[in-house]
Design a protein around this nucleic acid. Structure first.
Length: 422
RNA sequence: GGAGAAUUGGCAGAGUGGUCGAAUGCGGUAGUCUUGAAAACUAUUGUACCGCAAGGUACCGGGGGUUCGAAUCCCUCAUUCUCCGCCA
């Protein structure tokens, strides 16, 4: 959520930058400024009435103490009359406040100036890609066939026990998955991240804090009985650890990592996109979260991107780096880099990580602030990135390392798996 | 799940309808004293919003209500503690 003060002061610049998202912000911004004005003017009126009525109440107390019953009763009648006025104004203020809030929720984050204009993922900017891709081999299989051939993952069993998108990992498939989780967590720890095991369900406030609510409500599994949401990513509980927190400048950098399963309803997905491990309702992910000084957040974004690229290098997976265009940029993000791994079995690029700077967009909702050198309170910047999402890593690992007589395990993983070949 | 008690400023802890944004102590900040530090003493010290300002409004776990007036009374929810039940 953008700060209202920022909208007041930088209206034109914001409208201009939102165009990069193909978002015509002008009508919405105008409505917001109007609602803001209405809110402030009725609030002033209300506060004047309250001030008067507080004054009368004080007088009444005084009059009673002095034993002046008659005057007190007169004042009481006056106070009661003001109550009516107060009620009307109070409703008015509440109405404008609600309107303003709802309108503000509709404005996406302002893209960073480096974000390219574009309508869809086809216009994302490729900023780093391998010189050559692996040469095509006749025996190459997509991972779902490899999974079946070596009995690593059972999709049908998942359908029986739960539903589509909830696979069973078995034997070496399960162990490889667990090895990857441990590898990623150890790497993150070595890079200075504190490991967290958060709750896998969160309350409504947390959903609002990171921006899943209200606009992605349908993407989360919701337990109506206790009004809790299954997390779609560890970002939600990790970032919400710092909801309503006032930091000191010396608390930076805050570097958190956590492994969690992630639950997504993925309503509306279909076809080859959901084949095999490509898109699941439950998957594992190791996430990085950073809370940083605004001056530093873009350097941190680059650092995080380089870190995740390093993981892919260690695993020997061919990857490319994209700067998301305005049309593909997430609602809450100002700048996002996606990392994609080339899947030889499917002959396509699969997104395995998304690294974003949210600037103050989440911090504003979270009330996540710090005291600067002048002892003034400022919103912090939040960032996060997958490091990494497991299913597509597993898929591309199986596909890219296959030969006619098995699948090679990357050297860095062998200490974790306990086997070097499937 | 059942019964009882509690929830006040950074912390501890008063306050049961008007003089309470809230005593007092600790802590924090500034100063006096000191070669320096400690101790002592003095002053100061919550947050958010509206307003150019003066100033105003709101906040005593959250929400709602009674009243001219609520930290204080009522309803409701949450959390914590104690006891019982259940349980990895």
């Amino acid at each position: 959520m953008l700060e209202i003060a920022r909208i007041r002061e930088n209206k034109e610049a914001i409208i201009e930058l939102l165009k990069v998202r193909n978002f015509d912000g002008a009508p919405l911004i105008e409505k917001i400024l109007k609602a803001d004005e209405n809110w402030r003017s009725s609030k002033t009126k209300l506060e004047n009435v309250l001030a008067e009525s507080n004054g009368i109440a004080k007088q009444i107390g005084q009059l009673f103490r002095e034993g002046k019953q008659v005057e007190a009763n007169e004042a009481k009648a006056k106070g009661a009359a003001l109550k009516e006025e107060e009620k009307v104004l109070n409703d008015e203020v509440g109405g404008f406040a609600k309107e303003l809030q709802e309108l503000l929720f509709e404005v996406p984050n302002v893209p960073h100036p480096s974000v390219p204009q574009g309508n869809s993922d086809e216009e994302n900017e490729v900023i780093d890609t391998p010189d050559t891709l692996p040469e095509k081999k006749d025996f190459w299989l997509p991972h779902w066939e490899l999974a079946k051939k070596y009995d690593l993952i059972d999709f049908e069993l998942g359908v029986k026990v739960t539903g589509a998108g909830f696979p069973f990992y078995k034997g070496k498939g399960a162990r490889l998955q667990r090895a990857l989780i441990n590898f990623f967590l150890d790497e993150a720890r070595d890079a200075g991240y504190q490991e967290i095991i958060p709750p896998f369900v969160v309350n409504e406030n947390s959903g609002y804090g990171t921006g899943q609510l209200p606009d992605k409500e349908g993407q989360m599994y919701h337990d109506a009985k206790d009004d809790l949401y299954l997390i779609p990513t560890a970002e939600v509980p990790l970032t919400n650890m710092y909801r309503d927190v006032l930091l000191k400048e010396k608390d930076f950098p805050i570097k958190l990592t956590g492994y969690t399963p992630c639950f997504r309803r993925e309503a509306g997905s279909y076809g080859s996109h959901v084949r095999g491990l490509n898109r699941l309702h439950q998957f594992d992910k190791v996430e990085l979260v950073r809370i940083e000084h605004p001056n530093n957040s873009y350097a941190v974004l680059d650092e995080m991107t380089a870190y995740v690229q390093g993981l892919l290098k260690k695993l020997g997976l061919p990857y490319r780096t994209l700067r998301l265009c305005g049309g593909d940029l997430g609602f809450t993000s100002a700048l996002t880099y996606d990392l994609e791994v080339y899947s030889v079995g499917q002959d396509k690029w699969l997104e395995v990580s998304s690294i974003s700077n949210f600037e103050t967009f989440q911090a504003n909702r979270l009330k996540l602030r710090f005291k600067d050198e002048q002892n003034k309170k400022q919103l912090a910047h939040t960032l996060n990135g997958s490091a990494l999402a497991l299913p597509r890593i597993l898929a591309t690992l199986l596909e890219n390392n296959q030969s006619e007589d098995g699948i090679e395990i990357p050297e860095v993983l062998v200490p974790y798996t306990g086997f070097d070949k499937i």
